[in-house]
Amino acid sequence: MVLRIGMKQLAARGWPRLLLLAMTGALVAGFALWPRSPLNLASAADLRTSGLLEQWQAGNVVVLVRHVERCDRSPHPCLGPADGITRVGSEAAVHLGAAFRALGMGHTDVLSSPITRTAQTAAYMFEQPMVAQEWLASCGKSLRDEVVAHKLAHHNLLLVTHSGCISDFESQTGFKHALASEYGSALFVSVGDAGQVKVLGVVNEQNWQSLLNRKL
């Protein structure tokens, strides 16, 4: 009788520990399975180990660039129309274009959403209007396929688009819960010969200068 009570007491004391272990295991498993944001390529080391530089030189990269600061959501002076970018944004776009020229634009095609803020961003990045594509504004479920279809062999493809479109693309490439893209951020992916897509990582606008200072 004493032994039976002791066994019951031991079992009762053991349940909280078992429950805690079970909950910990579930949390660890959930964290491992939860899709995270793409790698933030904030350092030269990250940029090199991602394979981006080699893939860019080979012309195997697509980069989705979010437009710079929009006028209707900022206290800064507008560059022009309310649906466009701010003057601060235009300066950021100029610096962003310089960063891409430092990477090398010799074999890179540039397309832009036709919306004012993306068209202005592209124009300030490269000092001329870019070819506008409606699918870079509407996006949706077909975006990944559209991106692959517009990618030419051995030519990088730079797409100036919107945060919602970048989120659509991330969701379709395994990052359903990625953080929203920042103004001027660039999502880099490689596209193989058979159309297979690999997300390489993100470079945010404020990180370019430090990367360039390291003479990538």
Score class of each variant (00 low, 15 high):
His95Leu: 15
Ile115Asn: 10
Glu170Gln: 12
Pro129Leu: 09
Ser210Asn: 14
Leu3Cys: 12
Thr86Ser: 02
Phe175Val: 05
Asn40Ser: 15
Lys141Val: 15
Arg4His: 12
Val63Leu: 03
Gly184Glu: 00
Tyr183Arg: 06
Leu187Met: 06
Ser74Tyr: 01
Leu64Val: 04
Glu170Tyr: 09
Leu200Met: 07
Thr118Ala: 14
Arg48Cys: 10
Val63Phe: 04
Gly164Asn: 10
Pro75Tyr: 04
Ala22Gln: 10
Glu205Tyr: 10
Gly51Asn: 07
Gly195Asn: 06
Ser112Met: 03
Ala132Phe: 07
Ser37Val: 05
Cys165Glu: 07
Leu39Gln: 13
Leu152Val: 11
Leu64Asn: 01
Leu211Pro: 05
Lys8His: 14
Phe169Tyr: 08
Leu41Lys: 01
Trp56Thr: 02
Arg117Gly: 01
Thr161Trp: 00
Arg101Cys: 11
Pro16Cys: 03
Ser138Lys: 11
Ile85Gln: 00
Gly80Trp: 02
Asp168Asn: 10
Thr161Tyr: 01
Phe126Leu: 07
Arg73Gln: 12
Trp208Ser: 04
Asn207Ala: 14
Leu27Pro: 04
Leu111Cys: 05
Gly6Val: 09
Ser190Phe: 04
Met1Phe: 13
Phe126Lys: 02
Ala32Glu: 11
Ala119Lys: 04
Trp135Lys: 06
Arg144Tyr: 08
Glu146Met: 11
Arg4Leu: 14
Glu54Ile: 03
Ala82Ile: 10
Tyr183Pro: 00
His95Met: 15
Leu41His: 03
Met125Pro: 02
Ile115Val: 15
Gly25Cys: 08
Pro129Ala: 08
Ala178Trp: 05
Gly59Cys: 07
Thr49Asn: 11
Ala11Glu: 09
Glu69Arg: 02
Gln55Ile: 03
Ile166Cys: 02
Val63Gly: 05
Lys198Pro: 07
Ala132Gln: 13
Leu200Lys: 00
Arg144Asn: 09
Ser142Gln: 15
Ala26Glu: 11
Thr49Ser: 15
Thr24Ile: 15
Ala122Gln: 00
Ala132Asn: 11
Ser171Thr: 13
Met125Leu: 02
Gly97Asn: 02
Gly51Tyr: 04
Ser50Val: 03
Leu179Gly: 12
Leu41Gly: 03
Gln57Lys: 14
Gly25Leu: 07
Gln206Tyr: 14
Ala93His: 06
His162Ile: 02
His155Asn: 10
Ala11His: 10
Pro35Lys: 06
Asp145Gln: 14
Thr118Gln: 07
Ala12Phe: 12
Ala93Pro: 00
Leu53Met: 11
Gly59Arg: 00
Asp145Phe: 11
Arg101Asp: 15
Glu54Gln: 14
Cys165Leu: 07
Ala32Gln: 13
Leu21Glu: 06
Glu69Met: 02
Ser185Val: 06
Val61Tyr: 00
Pro16Gly: 01
Arg66Met: 05
Asp83Asn: 14
Tyr124Gln: 08
Val147Ala: 05
Thr86Met: 00
Phe126Cys: 07
Pro35Val: 08
Ser74Leu: 02
Leu27Glu: 10
Ser210His: 13
Ser43His: 09
Trp15Asp: 08
Leu157Gln: 00
Pro77His: 04
Leu20Gly: 08
Thr161Glu: 06
His67Trp: 01
Asp46Met: 12
Leu143Ser: 03
Arg17Gln: 13
Thr173Gln: 01
Thr118Met: 00
Val199Asp: 01
Met7Tyr: 12
Ser50Met: 05
